[in-house]
Amino acid sequence: MWEKKPILLIVLATCAILVGTIVTVVLPFAWVNTEADRIEGVTPYTALQQEGRDVYIREGCNNCHSQTVRPLVSDVLRYGEYSKSGEFVYDRPFLWGSKRTGPDLARLGGKYPDAWHYKHMDSPRSMVPKTNMPDYKWLRDYPLDPQMIQRKMETLGFPYTAEEIKALKGKNDMDAIVAYMQKLGSDIPWREATETAIVGELVNPYTDTDQATISSWGSIFMENCAACHGARMEGEIGPELIGEDYDDEILFELIYSGITDGGMPSFSSLGTDKVWKLTNFIRNYKAGGDQ
């Protein structure tokens, strides 16, 4: 009978469509982003960070980068603590993404110093030779519009001060996006909480390895360290490594765990073997072994 009555068909079809919609999309508003989701320490974006977020949106960064770490062992090891609903309450729109052509960025904040980001955005291939990320140096040519940003903050209902808006003058899109990236995922103190504690005695497994083999591990250094410490360890974003005189065990621990406050990321994701190889390569290099 509905096959002969178009209005009836439309009403019935609408009802069929609305059942699943109400259960899975409308009702969840009662449970999601409520007080129960709140996490102490999660704060709204500052004017500069919010503008950086809008640059991220404008340039379609979400087409290649996701922003959710899943509670899966490979995700947590690679990116950090898994994402929680309460961390996203100020995100309009959400930027979780659907594809990881590049790595996930949900826990990027605080991983690298600002200088790393500026250099990387200017020319990604100068730091990561085989990446396909486009250059974004040109973001430096676009000055911020403080008035517009103030309007955005008002629309979002985020707190801001007059000085904060005034301070935007003279800054550009690059400053904004770097500020945003430093905020990502850093509202909860996960980095401190997940710092690896090395238990037991550390023993360098490569004390008897010959010079040629150790030199061949330079490729690990080039891929992971050279971008900040220079191809010849002369230092740039990070300090010069020649002349440092740490014990093997201490150097291993520095690389493995990173220096949370000093801008040196943890390289535990490389695994102990590669970190030992790096340790030996660096120690050996400064001992006069110019390749």
Binding site: T21, T24, V25, P28, F29, V32, N33, D37, D54, S85, E87, F88, V89, Y90, D91, R92, P93, F94, W96, M148, R151, K152, T155, L156
Partner: peptide, 24 residues
């Protein structure tokens, strides 16, 4: 959405809710 200007708006939903609506 909440418009800021003719060419910029913010989603009416935030975070997890926004994700749920978007993928629905």
């Amino acid at each position: 959405a909440m418009p800021v200007s003719l060419f910029k708006s913010y989603s009416a939903y935030a975070g997890t809710n926004d994700a749920n609506v978007e993928w629905w």
